[in-house]
Nucleic acid binder design. Structure first.
Lengths: 235, 235
DNA sequence: CGCTCTGTTGAGCGCCTTCAAGCTTAGTGG
DNA sequence: CCACTAAGCTTGAAGGCGCTCAACAGAGCG
């Protein structure tokens, strides 16, 4: 059973009123009086790749807003293998399940250095009771998670290795238009696509030979979008 | 592209105050004054197997509470093949996405004769604004959907055909303890497990030969729970 | 230099897919 | 009542794809 480190650097107490990405985050619709209801400090943390926000099964004290970086949500199978069920980027929320009194459903592991806001459960619950403005945002977050989960199943767990990989590249490229796609190792790649890591490696090698992607640095890829879409459509 | 019928029999206007499964449904926590806020009729429908509650991409006017029966949520791949992403039973809600202004994400098809309450979007939104009691229930429903989606991925889309099928039987058996498990054809079975229908058929045949399940009637199975759990654990 | 960790590549095998034929059952019309 | 049909299920055979085991290369680090 994997065990991830859980260290984090404290960046300060978040000042939500002046949040730089306020239109993206959970508290984006709050008005001035609402902020008075926040009576616990909201910590802002910087977390290194490899560290975990939380572990599956722990009793959830907080949810987390991802301000930057990349986080994977992992589930473990009885035999110890792991499956990545979702990726979280800027604006996403991890640990929504604590709002319905459940322990964490996944282990949340940082893949690319991340800044997160740690929102104590009590704060969100209090706000949720007092101001309806938060509800719409919360539902939006539930929806996004659910949508991504369904999408993950049909797009990344269906069809041949070639197609799954092509679809993954297209998805990641769409998330950060104009930027190269950054992955985090062949092992994780396999865990996302439901493939062995050797198969993931081989398929990437094949894509590189075919010119569908170029690995400019280790785990950094420039993609040929149209060509990848063709792979998704091929016989 | 599959096309499902969408006929339904009108059973009457739901009387939520006296709902027989009130502790299960979305409106379970409402108090007497809340019901005054429901100003549109809530239809109660009976729907035959094969008919659809709604189709993917349609603009959602309503969500649906399943009162009885079984409903599958289906997504279609570009090549026309379909993937079942979730099953809904008594107490579950279909079409939550309309609450965040999205068109339906799936096609919802009845597998076993179902009774459903059709909740106009406006009703739920109105109630959601006025009474916080609905919020907890709504979040609970979002959570259940998300939990099932994640579970579906790790349990039913990972590992060999034998293990997937064993896990499916265990899941369905857990949903209706004491009752035999009812499936709805080998084609759907494949679509749930991410397998071809021939493989689904073969694997079921193998299970029957091994005594893991007994098909007492077409598509009705009595399961040997412990033996199926052993399959899930085997090398 | 040796160690570890990650990624690559090879070889063999087993499972699943695909194509195809035959079977059962139910429905239809003679 | 029985042919005929159609749909769903089963089963066979062949082939390919991905898994597994394994060896090896390169990078980073002590």
């Amino acid at each position: 059973m994997h065990r991830y480190r859980t260290d984090a650097a404290w960046l300060g107490t978040a000042r939500c009123r002046n949040c730089a990405i306020r239109d993206l985050v959970l508290f984006g619709d709050l008005r001035d009086p609402d902020f008075g209801l926040i009576q616990l400090p909201i910590d802002e943390l910087r977390i290194e790749p490899g560290a975990a926000l939380y572990h599956v099964g722990e009793d959830g004290g907080s949810l987390y807003t991802i301000r930057s970086g990349l986080v994977k949500l992992v589930q473990f199978l009885p035999d110890g293998t792991q499956r990545i069920v979702r990726l979280l980027r800027c604006g996403a929320v991890a640990g929504l399940e604590v709002l319905v009194g459940r322990p964490y459903e996944h282990t949340a592991v940082v893949l690319q250095e991340a800044e997160v806001c740690q929102l104590p459960r009590a704060v969100v619950e209090r706000l949720s009771k007092e101001t309806p403005r938060l509800h719409a945002r919360l539902m939006e977050r539930w929806y996004q998670s659910l949508h991504q989960a369904d999408d993950w199943l049909t797009a990344l767990s269906t069809g041949s290795a070639r197609r799954r990989l092509a679809r993954l590249f297209l998805k990641l490229a769409a998330d950060c238009p104009g930027e190269p796609v950054r992955l985090s190792g062949r092992e994780d790649l396999g865990a996302m696509l439901g493939l062995g890591m050797e198969t993931a490696s081989r398929t990437i090698a094949e894509f590189k030979r075919a010119g569908l992607v170029r690995e400019t640095m280790p785990n950094v890829f420039v993609c040929d979008g149209p060509a990848l879409e063709a792979v998704d459509r091929e016989g």
